[in-house]
Write a protein that binds this DNA or RNA. Sequence first.
DNA 1: AAAGCGCTCAACCGCATGCTG
DNA 2: CCAGCATGCGGTTGAGCGCTT
Length: 240
Amino acid sequence: MEEMRKGPWTEQEDVHLVLYVNLYGDRRWDFIAKVSGLKRTGKSCRLRWVNYLHPGLKHGKMSSYEERRVLELHNKWGNRWSRIARKLPGRTDNEIKNYWRTYMRKKGQEKKRTNLSSPSTSASHDSSYSSSYTVNSKKIKDTNERDFFDTGGLLTKGSLNHAKEIKKGDYTMDEIWKDIVSSDDDAITPVCPTLTSPIWDYCPDSLWITDQEKDTNMIVPTSEPFHSLFGQDGVGFFAG
DNA sequence: AAAGCGCTCAACCGCATGCTG
DNA sequence: CCAGCATGCGGTTGAGCGCTT
């Protein structure tokens, strides 16, 4: 077998990948990996696309609205990162996961500090990030949701019984969460977003693919990394 | 100036799930 | 129904960078 490349992607690889995704869609990753000549696995190609190259992705710091939304949705769904990401236009599950991790660490540290100064009974659970808590031991698939990053592949996923949704009883992180939230603002109420990227300036939720939406037009990105990759040549790149 | 430390984020891994023949 | 393959998801890792000492 041929040796597969690993590690950071080069700009050339990115250009190559985008080209082939444009040609074949973002579904057949093994195929794309093969025909593109990139010495990457399909998995790696998909990840690169989804987390970095996909048009419409926002890069950079999360807005306070997004931060609040993450907290709110995490409170609701737990570590269902991809699901949370679907509600945050331009953000990836990876990004949100990383944000959450950072957030939890920060909270943990804060808590440690406050506990040191004023020990309380709730000090029993460490609020620092841990993978040990579970929302639900089984993964739940929203198969009737169109994949968030799908750029045009056919939707063939079947439907799933929503009754199989999160089993509230397994929500063991709930306590941990409450502990954290209680020290936060009283309620996390989404406010009208003030998004930095001009792409999302108007009604971002309708631009980003949400649960209910079907196909959507490809949005030609106006931000990095696409402009650096394609410049004006990028125009019409995603047309067909 | 440089060594140490902590943080961020891209990328990998393993497992679960879905699809197809 | 089942097996094999492709894709998706969540957890984890590590390189690189900035800040502190």
